[in-house]
Write a protein that binds this DNA or RNA. Structure first.
Lengths: 337, 337
DNA sequence: TTGTACGCGTTATCAC
DNA sequence: GTGATAACGCGTACAA
């Protein structure tokens, strides 16, 4: 019965003795280093016979690396972070790296210590949208090198950053609306203090500047289904022909309320979302939205991390990954007045 | 500028020299073991001055444990596994454990090696719904101890298993339907070869046995939105007053097709889902479904793992966690004929 | 090519 | 209470 409780498997020494060679030779065989084929075979047989498995911790200590990358997320429950995690995992596994996860459960005060803990025992750490105050963040980063940040950028941050381009993303979305004839846009805001809301605002401001003929207005709303549901009246009375919800959830809530009032989307009014969550394609009508490539963000973050770990260091410190417009049925052509 | 490239931070030896004590004392201070307060303070100051951080790998090697648990999932993209991961992470962190993730990307042939790899460098491993053939699974399990399995149970498996009780879950759902007057039920099947489908079937068979007066029929369908969408005609012509979709996605597709045909849910026909995915509460009407507590599964799996790691070993090898019916609007009272 | 011996950074077991 | 010193298991110069 293998794997009994306290049995700490055989070591290279026992394999060496069994095969009548030196421990070094066993090590060489295990690492595919030039060794007499006959000897190698004998070692392999001994290893198999003894059920030998290299102790990863000892390997790590000796090699001075763990083949592990740490990932700190604010909330494992959030689909956006799943996507990043997934992207990181897939990309990192190609380089033989594993992923160690840590969640702060949206408690910003725990982030610094959590990040440090995670960094120990890994070769690098990726911080996903860290919530901690800038000052603390920059101080923490010093202890984390190599470290990569996803979806948070500020002047003071001097480590590689990979972020989704919300600003141009919503710009493209609005542009699409213009192209099909809309001239009066309403943006349902999320948390007005959040960076993601601010970036959308800026994208819309950019657009307004480029197109003086269009009117874009803003309304407070929120980030959940219910917030969207409650914004129907305001959306209708605003006179806008197209309303851009902060995210898909808000758009779904709005769609729902609109449907109950008998107003037809997109015939009477157009609605768009943001995020391209899995179910946005199943709403009625399917949601025109913006895809935020969470997995790509993760993959690119790993690429930067790998550059740092392996010393390739391309110095492409800031990577903005484009967010694509997904055109579906919830926004339609509008007749010019 | 701290954290420069090749700088492998100070060791306890350097801290010891700086503080004028022995390495052993530094170690004691770092681990909160009885030491003269004055000395301890001096050591702490030296550590701070040198920016000392214990090398986790060395700690692990010396202590013979990693404070890390491995989790192998078939697909990081699947919300069910997010939930488990989340539950594991939260529970494990209470014991000071971190989570190392590995995804087989639904490639069953990679699972055994992946599991073994993951097990090295962790103190235990949790296999989430492993896809590999039973024979290979049992063989692999021998090399993995301690190991826990989530959502797969068979006679031959002799390691602790934690699973959702799909069988009784759908039984409760059907029972609810009976209670509100339904007598003719239709089950839209998923993958007929899958265990999750089989368990639902059994649950329904149990029910039919207990209630000879109700007629429950089965129809091939699938697991996606489109499958549900395509099943509308069959559902309608079946004469059933309530249709139980394999999962929420299927139910949503069915809801959508029904709505297009002008048939009213739940007035004309009742529909239920399974899984309680986040958006099932936002459908029109909101979906009556069964909640599968993925996070709880993960948490319980960790509890079992912890028992094994810490030697508590309560021998509660098989844990079935109940799946609760969520009553919402998509299934209604029906008048007795 | 193969073997010897030391280093990796800590913990833990001894004596003092 | 404190300080040497031997594990912990493996990689790798260096010598043979």
């Amino acid at each position: 019965m293998p794997g009994k409780k306290g049995s700490r498997g055989p070591t290279i020494y026992e394999v060496a003795r069994h095969a009548g060679v030196s421990p070094a030779t066993v090590s060489r065989v295990m690492n595919g280093i030039a060794v007499d084929p006959t000897l190698a075979e004998r070692v392999r047989e001994s290893a198999a016979a003894l059920n030998f498995v290299p102790n990863q911790t000892a390997v790590n200590l000796s090699r001075q690396r763990t083949l592990t990358v740490g990932v700190v997320v604010p909330d494992l429950d959030n689909p956006a972070f799943h996507g990043m995690l997934h992207g990181i995992e897939r990309a990192a596994s190609r380089e033989g790296y594993r992923v160690l996860i840590a969640s702060s459960s949206e408690d910003a005060s725990r982030e610094p210590e959590l990040a440090r803990q995670t960094r120990r025992g890994t070769d690098a750490v990726i911080l996903c949208a860290p919530r901690m105050p800038l000052e603390i963040l920059t101080a923490t980063l010093d202890d984390l090198d190599p470290v990569i940040i996803i979806n948070r950028y500020e002047q003071e941050i001097t480590v590689p950053v990979v972020a989704a381009d919300y600003r141009r993303g919503i710009g493209r979305l609005a542009e699409h609306l213009l192209n099909v004839g809309h001239r009066r846009l309403l943006f349902l805001q999320g948390n007005p203090l959040s960076a993601s809301n601010e970036q959308r605002r800026q994208g819309l401001d950019d657009l307004a500047r480029r197109h003086p003929e269009v009117e874009v207005s803003f309304a407070a709303c929120g980030v959940g289904f219910d917030d969207g549901y409650g914004a129907a009246a305001e959306a209708l009375s605003s006179g806008a022909t197209a309303v851009l919800a902060f995210n898909d959830l808000v758009a779904m809530g709005l769609l729902s309320a609109l449907s109950e009032r008998g107003v037809s989307v997109p015939n009477d009014i157009s609605v768009t979302g943001f995020d391209n969550i899995p179910f946005s394609r199943f709403t009625a009508p399917p949601l025109t939205t913006v895809d935020v490539p969470a997995a790509e963000l993760g993959a690119m973050a790993w690429d930067r991390a790998w550059e740092l770990i392996s010393g390739t260091e391309s110095r492409a410190a800031f990577t903005l990954v484009p967010a694509q417009v997904i055109v579906r049925g919830s926004a339609a052509q509008v007749d010019p007045p």
